[in-house]
Design a binder for these strands. Structure first.
Lengths: 135, 135
DNA sequence: CCTATAACCTACTAAAACAGTCGAATTACT
DNA sequence: AGTAATTCGACTGTTTTAGTAGGTTATAGG
């Protein structure tokens, strides 16, 4: 399913926030502690903020915090916020004149999507933080 | 999991061969009948041939045929032949000094991979040809 | 032997996606 | 005012993807 650096970094940062809860962490602190490129991380945090997954405050205790409990934020939600819907097939909607074979393939990709979503929409930040993972 | 055009076209072509079994089809015929770019398809068929999924003969009845029964060729095998192992995480192997969090993420991607492989390594060309698909 | 057909192979190009930087503006305190 | 931090958009370099072009090779029929 091709995890981009954006998603990878976002998850690391959000997990750090989940661990630090309820304290706030600045972008600088996140970058330093987890070895993430600062300016890139900043733009990622901006996207997460616009998606209302994270929210920040300025002085006197500046930094980012999760807007919701880590238990209620799924990995899928984070991926959607950054890269859009994680879909497998190429043809998002299949034409009416699609042949038998094309239709079969479409079904296949839908099955793959379902399998994937079953994982990423189930696992939450809290699960990851606490080492609780699916078999 | 990001299906590339190569994989998409390869599946369509191979399915056409599975349907046509045991006759052979030329690249030209496949391109015409399924609206695939000819030269691109040729290079794809070359890769499939090197992976021994397909085998061709020249005159007098030129064209490509499956080397094995459609029942024994899984979608996963085809994907691997063209794009390599379909893996989700970015860091193929995680370093020894990986923290708790990084390790959790690695587990997560492994779970996602398992879910995906459960689909693509199970479904065969024959399944697709006959409209037999997982729920 | 000659020609037609079709596979085969290498190199090339255009466009998109990805990863990341830079600089200037803004905000909220002290 | 000064400072520490976020915010935003534009920009750049690299890699991947999709596809083309051109030339070579193999095998039959005539």
């Amino acid at each position: 399913m091709n995890v981009t650096a954006r998603v990878d970094y976002a998850l690391r940062a959000l997990l750090a926030l989940a661990v630090a809860e309820p304290s706030a962490l600045t972008a600088q602190a996140l970058a330093d502690r987890h070895d993430l490129p600062l300016t890139f991380l900043q733009s990622i945090l901006g996207e997460l903020r616009r998606a209302r997954l994270v929210h920040n405050q300025r002085l006197p205790m500046p930094g980012y915090r999760l807007t919701r409990a880590a238990e209620s934020i799924s990995v899928g939600e984070i991926i959607r916020a950054l890269d859009g819907d994680p879909t497998t097939g190429r043809d998002h909607d299949l034409p009416d004149d699609a042949g038998e074979v094309v239709r079969s393939l479409h079904q296949l990709w839908k099955a793959a999507d379902t399998a994937l979503l079953g994982v990423i929409d189930t696992v939450t930040l809290a699960d990851l933080r606490d080492g609780r993972l699916p078999a």
